[in-house]
Design a protein around this nucleic acid. Sequence first.
RNA 1: GCCACCUUAGCUCAGUCGGUGGAGCAAGCGUUUCGUAAACGCUAGGUCGUGAGUUCGAGUCUCACAGGUGGCUCCA
Length: 602
Amino acid sequence: MDNNGDNLRPLRHSAAHIMAEAVLDLFPGAKFGIGPAIESGFYYDFELPRPVTPEDFPAIENRMREIIRGKYNFNHSTQTVAQARESFKDQPFKLELIDAIAKGELGTHGENSDPDAVRGTDTVSIYQHDTFMDLCAGPHVHNTVEVPEDAFKLMQIAGAYWRGSEKNPQLTRIYGTAWQSKKELDDYLWKLEEAKKRDHRKLGKELELFILPDEVGSGLPIWLPKGAQVRRLIEEYVYQNQVARGYQHVYSPHMGKKQLWITSGHWDLYGDKMYAPMDIDGVDYLVKPMNCPMHMMVYKNSLRSYKELPIRIAENATVYRREQSGELTGLLRVRMITQDDAHIFVRPDQIQDEFLNVLDQTLDQFRTMGFSEFEAWVSVRDPKNKTKYLGDDESWTNAEDAIKAALDSRDMEYIVAEGEAKFYGPALDIMVKDALGRKWQCTTIQVDFQLPRRFQLEYIDADGTAKTPVVLHRAPLGSIERFFAILVEHYAGAFPVWLAPVQAMVIPIADRHNDYAFEVQKKLQAQGFRVEVDTRSERMNAKIRDAQLQKIPYMLVVGDKEAQAAAVSVRLRTGEDLKAMPLDDFVAMAKRLVESKSMELK
RNA sequence: GCCACCUUAGCUCAGUCGGUGGAGCAAGCGUUUCGUAAACGCUAGGUCGUGAGUUCGAGUCUCACAGGUGGCUCCA
């Protein structure tokens, strides 16, 4: 989003200070928390004497401009802890930070201190411009005029817990954005507008893809026929792809005995995310929050030989999780999640090959659906504290190396996140970048040394002894709901031909062409195309416009000439007019594009 | 769950100071039969998210609840 983020950082941080001064001027008695630069701007947290609203923004922005024009220098100084306590005696949040820094809980730059290097300090860093003094490590621009007065804008207000903890008081956070020039600001605002146009909730309504009716409940979507059509195509594609890669597909119940998730360990760790158990004949059952135990049952169904592994058990399965109400967002965050889930049972020596199989499938699918940029995160152990992980050192090292080797062999760059691994095994997460450059986390591939033990899974090895397999959990798309939302936004609702819910709209020019239009529809349907006919008593222009707004790839205009020649006039949703062509030619063209899952329309 | 804001016709929105609710699109009916992004007319459509309260009187003010939006926290 911001390639020159490093240059912008001091500017934005300085804008945060300027905003804080303005807010303090306009809201006497306000207490302030922290105010850093962030990805697209800055924020500052306040405790205010009255709620602030967006109507206050112009006044705050105007005061900020006055401060900027005052040409104040940002002066850096150092104070002793005692001096600082006096300087900020009316600012309880700052006093807390000073104490934390003095004790070494926070580094002198306010970062979370490395526990190995805990040491207190007796001085703190201070920045001041005009009347505003802040406990701050900087860096800042030299002078307030370096923050262009026409290149910032206050954006929104949000509640934010002091120091990020739910237990602490909630402060008012004011977000702003700031850039080097008005043009950059305008570009950014344009991008936000563009994102709004692509919002899957808006498009979902306009294109009749899905609904989230109040009557059903929060986070519980209903897929309308068109959305369901697209989803089915994605699922069928994934299914075929998995069959080709040696997966076996199963179906499992949507509920099961609570004991299953006690055995898996989920109940202890994630019980608060599950729906309350229901009593059936005196036994507690849960609506399933994850599939793992079901697939463990599949493995346990028969005695397994080392020769059988890997065994790949897949299921496009819906799980139910009690996400917090404030977190629900369209299809991106729902309470019923359909995962393209699978559990792969492998011998330790098969981890790398199997990881490659999953990685190849994942990248193949993303590329097919039009994504070309990815970001990979490998979550490994905390090298300083290897004891808190389950499984022996050798297994971990083997698995971590296998993940990295798989990525290396596909020339994938990745970020190693030390200490991010779950206690039961290392993992790979993949994010995709969409058409607007936004990153979305989709794929999770997780190595698990723990679950097979908990369910007492075994295979008989070559030497005749029983061994415990390793499990790989993996969901390349992640959640179908979420992935679908990302796809809608990526395509801006204009699905490629193979995925489009309606691939062609036949548009008769006048009523006398309806019979021929239906004939065209029938012929195309016989070839497997999804085609509708617009027989409304409307002008052709109106029919074209409506088909266009529905982002239907092809508008097939038929009038006297076409009816005569067994032809259709093909208009693309891009506006391009391919003119009349024999119907057979159109079928050949469209078939080629569908079969190759092309992003093109011709 | 927490903070702020929002909820008016199927959709997008207007509604002043508290005084019996409007528009465009969509829908139904009629006219029009048209060559690449919106033909014309008529009709119907609403207990203003739900429930309470203040008031002679509430879409408008207060409170509670539900749903949504943006964040926070969380995200197996």
